[in-house]
Structures are given as C-alpha cells and as structure tokens.
C-alpha cells in the first residue's frame, strides 16, 4: 500500500465529490466514477470483463444525479448511501485517491474469486 495524503475534507455536490487532501491537493470526482468502482463483491466482478464493465457503466449512467449521505468507516474508508443502485461498498481512502488521480483503484485485478 503506497502512502497517500490524509483525506481532510469531502464536499458533496449534486454531481461530484470534492476531495481535499493533506498535501493541499484538491480533486473533483463525479459520483458516477466512484460508483463505478464500487469495491463490493457484487459490483467488483463486473469490472473483470469488458462487456459487463460497460453494462455497469451504462447502469450507473442511467441513475439520476444524487448527493449521497456519507459515513466514515473506521479511520480508513467512507461508505455512501444512494437511493438507487448499490450502496454496500466500503470505499477506502486509497481507492478514492486512485480514482481522483485517474488511476485504476483495482490495479488490474478487480476481484479475487473465492470458491463460489
């Protein structure tokens, strides 16, 4: 896990999350981008394959813009609650940092398949 600056502030608008970090940087990220990268066990496998990844994108695009409610999880993640679609992901700060910096937060391996 690489070191990332501390997340200091999250400002929510209708369409975007504005993330302010300890190193003074600020990123504006569309919610739909964050939602696409939902790390839960249902959404993650969809990003494994091109076809389903696009389906996931389309699905998220179809949702209306919405400012989510938000909770901190421990001292390492945020959980968002939307009225439509998936709200079960725990979004770690490292992932949010990657998304903000337009890097793939999955680092090429969206989901480790267990024995199911």
């Amino acid at each position: 896990m690489s070191e990332i600056p501390k997340l200091i502030e999250l400002e929510r608008t209708e369409k975007t999350a504005i993330l302010r970090w300890g190193d003074g940087s600020e990123h504006t990220v569309p919610w739909k981008e964050i939602r696409y990268y939902c790390p839960c066990a249902r959404c993650s496998p969809s990003r494994d394959e091109e076809g389903r990844a696009n389906e996931l994108r389309e699905l998220i695009k179809s949702f209306r813009s919405e400012k989510p409610s938000v909770k901190t999880v421990g001292r390492y993640a945020l959980a968002f609650e939307w009225s439509q679609g998936c709200s079960s992901g725990i979004h770690k700060f490292e992932r949010l940092w990657d998304i903000a910096n337009e890097e793939d937060p999955d680092h090429g391996k969206p989901y480790v398949h267990g024995a199911w």
Partner: peptide, 16 residues
Amino acid sequence: LSEQLSEEDEPGINII
C-alpha cells in the same frame, strides 16, 4: 461493529 471500531479513533474528516 465498524461503528465500534471507528469510535476509538475519529478520522477527523470534515464532511460538507
């Protein structure tokens, strides 16, 4: 459970 874990150490993020 995760609420119990977070209580111990506030992440101190300002949420607007």
